[in-house]
């Protein structure tokens, strides 16, 4: 079976011929496109390690069939840093030691970028914690994660204001 679809992955449009309709976005990225930054922790939508942005929204890529996402725009952890410069969320994760083993980190960061784009949490720590609760961290770096998300949001807000000015 060959099933052609078009995806824009980290800004680059790609024509992909799927060999199997069962392939999830997660397994497409990891096993076929060599984008292994996105992690598989549970494969059942219960841990958030596979979080990516689809058309700008954070979703669990393990519960998304690739074939059903024909035409979608995908952003993964590999597509976040621009010209070698870390995204503010990435930088804040390092500064606040918002990870230990690092395995959930790509999902945490993509989730944080999605959360900031949603604009619902603001810098209210309780809303950030709730909004980040779909990303399990067994090392339990939650305090750093919350601090990093808030700081990145503040940084991005300042940058946005400067750009506007």
């Amino acid at each position: 079976m060959s099933l052609p679809i078009t995806l824009t992955v980290n800004g680059v449009p790609q024509r992909i011929v799927l060999d199997d309709p069962r392939v999830t976005l997660l397994d497409l990225l990891r096993e076929r496109l060599d984008l292994t930054g996105t992690k598989k922790g549970c494969d059942r939508g219960q841990c958030g390690a596979c979080t990516i942005l689809v058309d700008g929204r954070r979703v669990n890529s393990c519960l998304a069939l690739a074939i059903s996402h024909d035409g979608a725009e995908i952003t993964t952890i590999e597509g976040l840093a621009r010209d070698g410069e870390l995204h503010p969320v990435q930088a804040a994760f390092i500064a606040h030691d918002a990870f230990q083993c690092g395995f959930c980190t790509p999902g945490q960061i993509m989730s944080a970028v999605g959360l900031i784009a949603e604009g619902q949490a603001g810098t209210d720590p309780e809303r950030v914690r709730e909004g980040m609760s779909g990303n399990l961290c067994r090392c339990a770096a939650y305090r750093g994660i919350t601090e990093a998300v808030i700081e990145a949001q503040e940084t991005m807000g300042q940058a946005g204001r400067q750009e506007a000015a």
């Binding site: 519960l63 989730s111 949603e118």
Partner: peptide
């Protein structure tokens, strides 16, 4: 319900 990621989908 669920998580932000699941609610987005």
């Amino acid at each position: 319900g669920a998580s932000a990621q699941l609610r987005n989908a």
